[in-house]
Simulated scan of single mutants.
Amino acid sequence: MKYEELKNTWITAGQKVSDAQNALQLALVDDEVSAETLKELKAKVEATKAKRDLAKEQLDEAEKEGVAQARQNLPTPIPNTAEAIKEQFVKDFKDMLTGTYSATLTTKLDENGNGVGLTIPQDIQTAVNKLKRQFDALEQYVDVIPVSNLSGTRVIEKLSEITPFKNIDDEEDTINDVDEPSAYILKYLIQRYAGISTITNTLLKESSEKIIEWVTDWLAKKSTATRNAKILAALDGLPASQKTTVTNVDDIKNVVNVKLDPALQTTAFYLTNQSGFNELDKVKDAFGHYLLQPNPQNATQKLLLSKPVVVISDKFLKNGGTASKPTYPLFIGDLKEAVKLFDREQMSLLMTNVGAGAFEKDQTKIRAIDRFDVRLWDEEAVVFTTFTKIDDEKPATQAS
């Protein structure tokens, strides 16, 4: 077997170990999973590890036999400047395309010892995060929590009905127990999300800046689409008590004034899509003026009842209903309190010219992996409303 095939076999085996370990982690936090199932999952983890280790031994043996002698160069010095890091990344990227990239020398390993491919440098990840804002990234409106572990827990304290202290002027009265805070544990488990793109060797002829620009743009688009979908899926889990329809301005006021906690009034905002914003932008107040007003602190944003309106593309936040009678989405509240995104901050690239049909078509496939988890945190911090049309305010009746 050729060196490249051995390398891809080893990398694939490592990913299977990660998948088996993730399945075991999910089972550990699932109360309905039986002990027998846990035993089977544990045995599967051990079996995949054995296969991964065997694939690594075969890869090492191939190197000893001279199959990969051209790859036995000494590791390059660790770059210590942003420019040097980018240059090293581009060099490794090109080496992966041409098949001269040595997995044993350069591939980073995760905490389980599995190959994760070419890790995206921090400064390029920062550029990806900045670019994602241009693609209507919902994660900029939720709370992003960097984590270093694959799984963990957070303790959430819920608001509960609080009773006052008891008057104990009577010497024979006893003191009641005070209210204890109501709390529950939220568990997160980092998931891996991947996408594949087909590239050609013409990319090798581009400058370092062009290659980084291509990688950054592609990662930003794919990561934005993936994280948006998971954030909206989490919000879809809101209970029925936090979902309603609105038909006029008073309905919106009822949501803001009654359904949202007063503590959220200063941080609450509206989130809708292009179509929903278009309908809101036509609503007029009792004096015939448009209800949406420019935000004096942000010229590109408008205010609805003194709170900012955030607009994202219809392709990310879709309409409901039918084409002839659509319903428009309108989230009201504070998404940073409602949703938590646990970010593993470990994006990576892997390439192959053998697997995924690349060998048959003489192509090169590049796969990006993003690692994160999204959880609904405070379900009372946001209300999901829908509307087909918001009626104009009726003019005030003049005194006779």
Rank of each mutant, 00 (worst) to 15 (best):
E65C: 04
L341S: 08
A368T: 09
E46F: 00
P308E: 12
K340F: 05
E139G: 12
K56L: 14
S208M: 11
I124P: 06
S160F: 05
I196K: 10
W377E: 05
A194L: 10
I252T: 06
A323E: 10
Y101F: 08
S34R: 06
A368V: 06
L232W: 06
A299G: 08
P308N: 08
F277G: 04
V147N: 09
D110E: 07
V246R: 09
V90K: 02
G237D: 15
D177H: 14
Y328L: 07
Q301H: 06
T163P: 07
D362Q: 09
N248W: 06
R192W: 00
A268F: 03
Q58V: 13
K253D: 03
L235Y: 03
N278H: 08
P329T: 13
T106P: 00
G152Q: 02
K243M: 12
V155C: 04
L38F: 02
K86Y: 01
V383Y: 01
K44L: 11
I212P: 00
L131K: 14
R227Q: 15
T352V: 07
S182N: 14
V383M: 03
G66P: 05
I145L: 12
L150W: 01
P146F: 07
L335Q: 10
T397N: 08
Q88I: 00
T272M: 08
K282A: 10
P239H: 11
K315N: 15
S275E: 15
N278M: 12
N257G: 11
P164F: 07
Q265D: 13
E40C: 04
D169H: 08
D343Y: 03
R71P: 00
G355H: 03
D177A: 14
N129A: 12
L303K: 08
K42I: 04
T266G: 10
D30T: 11
